[in-house]
Simulated assay, not measured.
Amino acid sequence: MRAAVLTTPGEPLQVRPVSASPLEPDEILVRIVGVGVCHTDFAALSGAVPLPLPAVVGHEGSGVVEQTGADVTDLAVGDHVVLSFDCCRECSQCRAGHPAYCELFAAMNYFGTRLDGEATLRDEAGEPVHGSWFGQSSFATHAVASARNAVRVDPSLPLELLGPLGCGLLTGAGTVLNVLRPQPGQRIGVWGLGAVGLAAIMAAKAAGCSVIVGVDPNQERRRIAADLGATHTIDPTATSDVAWDVLEVSDGGLDFSVDAVGLGSVIREALAVLRTPGTCATVGLQGLENDITIDQGHLLIGRTLTGVIEGDADPRTFIPQLIQLWQDGKFPFDRLIETFGFEEIDKAIDAAASGRVVKPVLVMA
Rank of each mutant, 00 (worst) to 15 (best):
P182K: 04
Q186A: 07
G61C: 09
C94E: 01
L45A: 10
S132G: 00
G168Y: 03
A281N: 06
D314T: 15
S92N: 03
R2F: 06
L299C: 09
A143M: 13
V357W: 00
D334K: 06
V258P: 03
S92V: 12
E103Y: 00
V261L: 08
W191D: 02
D255Y: 02
P99H: 05
V249M: 04
A230M: 05
G185W: 04
A143C: 14
L53Y: 08
I188R: 02
L104R: 15
S240Y: 01
S240M: 09
F342N: 03
A4Q: 13
I309T: 12
P360W: 05
A238H: 11
G284H: 07
F340E: 03
V56C: 07
P236H: 07
E27T: 10
P332W: 07
F105V: 09
P9C: 07
S46I: 00
G135H: 09
R335M: 05
E27A: 13
A348Y: 02
T73K: 15
S146I: 01
F42H: 12
A20E: 11
I349R: 06
D245K: 14
V153Q: 09
S138Q: 06
H39T: 08
A226K: 14
I234M: 08
E127K: 15
F134L: 14
G117I: 10
I349F: 13
H80N: 15
W244A: 15
C102E: 06
G287T: 10
E66T: 12
S84W: 13
Y110D: 12
Q286L: 13
I188T: 12
A225I: 05
A203V: 07
V33L: 01
L300C: 11
C91Y: 05
V242L: 05
V196G: 13
V283A: 09
A173K: 05
A76P: 02
I319M: 13
I292H: 11
F139Q: 02
L83S: 03
T306I: 14
R268F: 00
C167F: 04
Q296L: 15
P54G: 13
P184G: 09
L170F: 03
I234V: 14
C38Q: 04
V37T: 12
E103T: 06
I32F: 00
G262A: 14
G208A: 13
G355P: 01
F256L: 05
V18P: 00
V37I: 15
V249W: 04
T339M: 04
G252M: 08
E11L: 12
T339G: 03
E11N: 14
